[in-house]
Design a binder for these strands. Structure first.
Length: 887
RNA sequence: GGACGUGUAGCUCAGCGGGAGAGCACCUCGUUGACAUCGAGGGGGUCACAGGUUCAAUCCCUGUCACGUCCA
């Protein structure tokens, strides 16, 4: 017999090993099977599973298991990302903590060797954690962005784009991260509101005839000023254009120029221009051919282009010193407190410097065009659709993508420099040498570019590089484009957009048919989980405490679109209980001899209760299938919850008890067979969300009755049931019983009828059809409603409590327990309810426009409702008058 | 400043043109041979606000307010 509870601790590991060992995770080799593929958003190789991963991967697993059971060749392709900056940062920190020398002292080769060591040590952590979650990835196809195959793909893409002129080297302002001392891309910059100040500085005119006041939040950059700009139409400054100020401290004359960038409304209307350290000023500088003076070193200290006493100062120290100097010179006019946006590195957290350097760029503007078109034409569809707007917004305003990073951990840029700086781009050093020989006419020593590529460059190739591109593999042939991508909105720019551009450019086809954007998981208070806030929930801990299925069900049920998920332990506990509920329903079935019958056909079921549960099961199978097809994961989970708990356990199991203990052997046997059938369907429908518990139940009920002939549940056939199995008569009949029992319970509870009392249920007034239902189901009703019997009377006896169900008047003779006041209150409440309903519907039906314009069935429905309510109200009023008469 | 999203029961969220729903929390009752990780019953909402479209609006449109996120 089944134990009282499912024990995830012992079962999960065993079941996962069984699945993996059986090869169930690999896509079907059947060439007739329709392919279905998902590539995993590769987690950082050295990372560990956080709750966002748990959500994202649960949803991918739900879809993969669903499609696998539907008979598709389902591939969920796993892998990890080398995550350039993030990993290098972690390893550097580790080395420092262990008292090692820094990476610069260590040297490139030795440092990279250390990172690989680290990867070997901790690289398996996250994939093992995915296994604990139940992820049915095909591990035989696992990839890593820095493995040889993917690196070859990266080199090929770089060389190809370079040849096509879509990758180029350029000197321009970049976002410079002084902590990591590397360039980063625009989207790696986070604008943060911070408290700061506008410092109003007076710059004396060179001829000593006056001064011009400029304001800045970054005083130290004045050391690199090369102009003061005013608006060309600003009357105040017309006469000054073309003249010069003498830059204090630096003592350098700089011109006063006219440029529309200066906003007459802001401050004094004049603005200092530092072309080498501000994106706007850079544009002004280019327009006006201003010199660009870089005043910083790579780690944001003042360099040799500034006066000696500033050199070597940190940028923030320099700021103070500059302000102090202005004050001393009597040129500090005002310090105005303000809050303003300051760029920060998303990884380092330090203030980003606009910095003039040589970097490699991708011409994203060109690549974006077909990627925009693909979504416009619906070749790739976002789900929910509104994320397409976010995608378009960014893609239509895309800037050149800076792809070089001054890091060591990553794909080294396949570019070599000759002695004269001439660049040779090739997939191999030999290739570059050949190009150089051709160019110089002889061999020259070449030096490879020191930089590596942005991590997202290689992840951008993920949907095809993982399948073996540039080789023409059978996987590419079969599984590209992938079916669905499931990811978070935070990487639409970083990742989804890049995959769209690269996929279309190199494969000629979009990388995925559908992109499902999942919600962001937050803590119970709605705060973003972060280590610094200390509110992170460790999914592994939750798996330990409640089992993987409970966590998976919770995340699935809460994955409603366009919303944050506020996760609480209470919720997970509730869904753990749900699993226990199903487990015990199966245990009940087993105890009562429910077993699969040889040749059982739900179409041939005779008993009304059985016909009803067959129909309900069919409806559920349809709605769950539809929900999963449409990525309505929460809808699927909630539908399963309702059906299993409220329909199957609360009603079918309860109503089946008299049949299973009854004398009608044929009906008993049919009920046993039907229950077993329904449970098998339930296990299948629930399996994608709760794979462990369902697989375990499947295994433990394998010997009950006829063999299934379907092997493990993970590869069992998804239920395909015909609508013809739904029987409206059975629905009506069971509907009446359910309503009668519910209402009867309500009456008993509200009137405080003692639990031990067993009155009769009196059928006072009902149609012939209804009488038949009460008659044939008397035993069921008696047990479920806990009444002595069901009997038929002409008139309710004195003091019996009447209630109306589906137009029929029933009564409970519980006079001895009656609290008159309570009963009066109950009746009055019911009558009021009906009265307001009647008023509402009458108003509607009294409106000629409604009758004329509304759909016929809506009008009819309202007429019926009115008749029903009026009849019920009349009966209850009659009962109330009898009650008053007693008094 | 721009874009997007969200405002429904105490909390978390479904629903989305024709009778306001679930889970949790709360209150009352219950040791019924599957399950106390349970069962039965109950209270609780001018569906943010104001206009409009419609026979009919929580749902569609416009505006306002509040909150959130992203981009400047």
């Amino acid at each position: 017999m089944l134990e009282k509870n499912f024990d995830p601790k012992t079962a999960e590991q065993r079941l996962y090993a069984m699945w993996e060992g059986s090869g169930a995770f690999a896509p079907s080799a059947d060439p007739a099977a329709e392919p279905f593929s998902i590539v995993i958003p590769p987690p950082n190789v050295t990372g560990s599973l956080h709750i966002g991963h748990a959500l994202n991967n649960t949803l991918q697993d739900v879809l993969t298991r669903f499609e696998r059971m539907r008979g598709k060749a389902a591939l969920w392709l796993p892998g990890t990302d080398h995550a350039g900056i993030a990993t290098q940062m972690v390893v550097e920190r580790q080395l420092a903590a262990a008292g090692n020398i820094g990476r610069r002292d260590m040297g490139r080769d030795e440092f990279i060797a250390k990172v690989w060591e680290w990867k070997a040590e901790s690289g398996g952590t996250i994939t093992n954690q995915l296994r604990r979650l139940g992820a049915s990835c095909d591990w035989s196809r696992e990839r890593f962005t820095l493995d040889e195959g993917l690196s070859a793909a990266v080199r090929k893409v770089f060389v190809t784009l370079h040849k096509q002129g879509l990758i180029y080297r350029d000197k321009r302002l970049v976002n410079w991260d002084p902590h990591f001392q590397t360039a980063i891309s625009d989207i790696e910059v986070e604008q943060k509101e911070v408290d700061g100040a506008f410092y109003h500085f007076a710059y004396p005119l060179e001829d000593g005839s006056g001064e011009i006041v400029v304001a800045t939040t970054r005083p130290e950059t004045m050391l690199g000023d090369t102009a003061v700009a005013v608006h060309p139409s600003d009357e105040r400054y017309k006469g000054l254009i073309g003249r010069a100020v003498r830059l204090p401290i630096v003592n350098r004359p700089v011109p006063i120029i006219a440029d529309e960038y200066a906003d007459p409304e802001k401050g004094s209307g004049a603005v200092k221009i530092t072309p080498a350290h501000d994106f706007n000023d850079y544009q002004v500088g280019k327009r006006n051919n201003l010199p660009m003076i870089n005043i910083f070193t790579d780690d944001a200290k003042i360099n040799e282009n500034a006066p000696a006493e500033y050199q070597g100062l940190d940028r923030f120290a320099a700021r103070k010193k500059v302000v102090a100097a202005f004050e001393e010179l009597g040129l500090l006019r005002e310090i105005e407190k303000t809050r303003h946006a300051v760029p920060h590195g998303d990884r380092s957290g330090v203030v980003i410097e606009p910095y003039l350097t040589d970097q490699w760029y991708v011409d994203a503007k060109v690549l974006a065009q077909p990627a925009i078109k693909a979504v416009e034409e619906g070749r790739t569809v976002f789900e929910p659709r509104h994320w397409e707007k976010t995608y378009f917004e960014w893609m239509r305003n895309i800037e050149p993508w800076c792809i070089s990073r001054q890091l060591w951990w990553g794909h080294r840029i396949p570019a070599w420099y000759g002695p004269d700086g001439k660049i040779f781009v090739a997939e191999t050093e030999e290739g570059a040498k050949a190009l150089a020989r051709e160019h110089y006419g002889h061999d020259e020593p070449l030096r490879q570019d020191d930089d590596v590529l942005d991590t997202w460059f290689s992840s951008g190739l993920w949907p095809f590089s993982t399948m073996g591109w540039p080789e023409k593999t059978s996987d590419l042939e079969r599984f590209y484009p992938t079916s669905t991508l499931i990811t978070g909105f935070d990487i639409i720019f970083f990742w989804v957009a890049r995959m769209m551009m690269m996929g279309i450019h190199f494969m000629g086809e979009v990388p995925f048919d559908r992109v499902f954007i999942n919600a962001l998981v937050r803590d119970a208070e709605g705060k973003k989980m972060s280590k610094s806030k200390g509110n992170v929930m460790d999914p592994l801990e939750l798996v330990d405490d409640y089992g993987a299925d409970a966590l998976r069900f919770t995340l699935t049920a809460m994955s409603g679109q366009a919303r944050d998920i506020k996760l609480s332990r209470q919720r997970i506990e509730g869904y753990r209980n749900f699993g226990t509920k199903l487990w015990n329903a199966a245990r009940f079935a087993q105890v009562n001899g429910c077993a699969r019958a040889e040749g059982f056909d739900p179409a041939n079921v005779k008993g009304v209760l059985n016909r009803w549960i067959v129909g309900e099961t069919v409806r559920t199978a349809h709605s769950i299938t539809k929900a999963l097809e449409g990525c309505s994961f929460d809808g699927a989970a909630n539908g399963l919850y309702r059906f299993i708990w409220n329909t199957f356990c609360d009603w079918y199991v309860e109503l089946s008890k008299p049949l299973l203990n009854g004398a009608d052997e044929a009906l008993k046997a049919e009920t046993q067979a039907t229950a077993a059938w329904a449970l098998d369907v339930i296990l299948k429908l629930l399996h994608p969300v709760m794979p462990f518990l369902t697989e375990e139940l499947w295994a433990q009920t394998a010997d009950l009755g006829a063999p299934r002939g379907e092997g493990m549940l993970i590869t069992a056939r998804w239920p395909q049931l015909s609508d013809t199995l739904i029987d409206p008569d059975a629905d009506a009949e069971i509907g009446l019983i359910v309503a009668a029992v519910s209402e009867g319970r309500s009456v008993k509870a509200e009137l405080n009828v003692p639990h031990s009392a067993r009155p009769a249920l009196l059928v006072v007034d009902a149609t012939d059809a209804q009488r038949t239902v009460f008659q044939t189901n008397a035993a069921v009703i008696a047990q479920t409603l806990r009444v002595a019997e069901v009997s038929f009377v002409e008139q309710a006896p004195q003091g019996a409590i009447p209630f109306v169900v589906n137009g029929a008047t029933l009564a409970l003779p519980v006079a001895e327990f009656i609290d008159l006041a309570a009963e009066r209150a109950r009746l009055a409440k019911e009558i009021t309810g009906h009265a307001s309903d009647i008023a509402h519907v009458m108003k509607k039906l009294g409106n000629p426009a409604f009758v004329a314009n509304a759909k016929e069935e809506v009008v009819e429905e309202n007429r019926e409702r009115l008749a029903e309510s009026e009849a019920a109200k009349a009966k209850l009023e009659h009962a109330l008058s009898l009650l008053e008469a007693v008094v």
